[in-house]
């Protein structure tokens, strides 16, 4: 064992590379070729630093990067659905144009406003955390949770209507009627919507509708849980202007949920024209 070390250390002494070994060797302990030990760099930082990090800054940078990589995986997750949507919309544009008016632009617009408003309150909550204002943080987190709940309530009203209209894809009597009002697609008028082929295509649209909004709704639900956890922690005075990484990370997540909806809204609600009904 000792022989190995000696040989290694000797090896490092005879290097001819451009690295500053020889210059450093007086002051650094070498062990093995090319590595030195520095003492004192493990000084404990401020509070809330996990043992594997050197500084709170490093921990924050790691959390931030980790969160963004997670969001990149989320982009790909929803990306699979969007790919399927793009393919089938390109194949069956007229059926899709006939299907999207079944989504009420009224509810869709309300929900869009709810989500972008909640994004604003979330951003303001992060700002309150950054400035160490606990009261405002509590308030804005509360607003965000409330708006998320509004979103889910509206979504469940929509789901109920869809089930009543036989648009649930698991239903035996799935049947898509021709929507009232004008369809923004010249070919849509020619489509015989009662044929099995067209009903199959309509079912593909609603398959995508239910799964995409379902997965998005699931994300909203998770968001509510996370935000509530933040709220409870804030009431227990966990966060301060020195430590609020969880607030910021949850904020990123929440903005992402908003982001997905920004694309879902036009694709699922508007591409046959905005139809206002409740």
């Amino acid at each position: 064992m000792a022989d190995t070390h000696a040989a290694q250390a000797a090896a490092s002494g005879t290097t001819t590379t451009g690295t500053p070994t020889s210059a450093m060797s007086g002051s650094d302990t070498h062990f093995g070729a090319g590595y030195a030990v520095s003492a004192g760099s493990t000084a404990h930082g401020a509070h809330a630093r996990a043992h594997q990090f050197d500084t709170p800054q490093q921990q924050y940078a790691a959390s931030n990067l980790g969160m963004w990589i997670f969001l990149a995986t989320e982009v790909m997750t929803f990306g699979g659905f969007f790919l399927a949507y793009i393919v089938y919309r390109a194949l069956y544009p007229e059926t899709f144009a006939l299907a999207s008016p079944h989504q009420s632009a009224t509810w869709g617009t309300i929900n869009t406003f709810a989500l972008i408003l909640s994004s604003l309150t979330m951003a303001l909550a992060v700002h309150a955390a950054q400035t160490g204002n606990r009261r405002r943080l509590t308030m804005f987190l509360g607003f965000t949770i409330a708006l998320a709940c509004v979103f889910l309530v509206v979504k469940s009203i929509e789901y109920t209507t869809h089930i009543e209209e036989n648009l649930w894809i698991g239903s035996q009597n799935f049947h898509m009627e021709r929507p009232a009002g004008e369809i923004v697609d010249p070919e849509a008028a020619r489509v015989d919507l009662d044929s099995t082929v067209q009903q199959g295509r309509a079912k593909i649209f609603f398959f995508l509708y239910w799964t995409m909004t379902g997965l998005h709704g699931f994300h909203v639900l998770i968001g509510i849980v996370l935000l509530s956890a933040l709220l409870i922690n804030n009431l227990r005075k966990v966060y301060s202007e020195n430590y609020y990484t969880p607030v910021e990370m949850t904020g990123l997540y929440w903005h992402f949920v908003d982001l997905v909806w920004i694309f879902l809204f036009p694709l699922l609600y508007l591409l046959g024209g905005a139809h206002w009904h409740i």
Binding site: A105, T109, T112, F113, I116, E182, V184, F265, P266, L270, L271, G273, A274
Partner: peptide, 10 residues
């Protein structure tokens, strides 16, 4: 958002 809703019927 308002713009996208208005554009949808055009």
């Amino acid at each position: 958002t308002i713009l996208t809703v208005l554009a949808a019927n055009f």
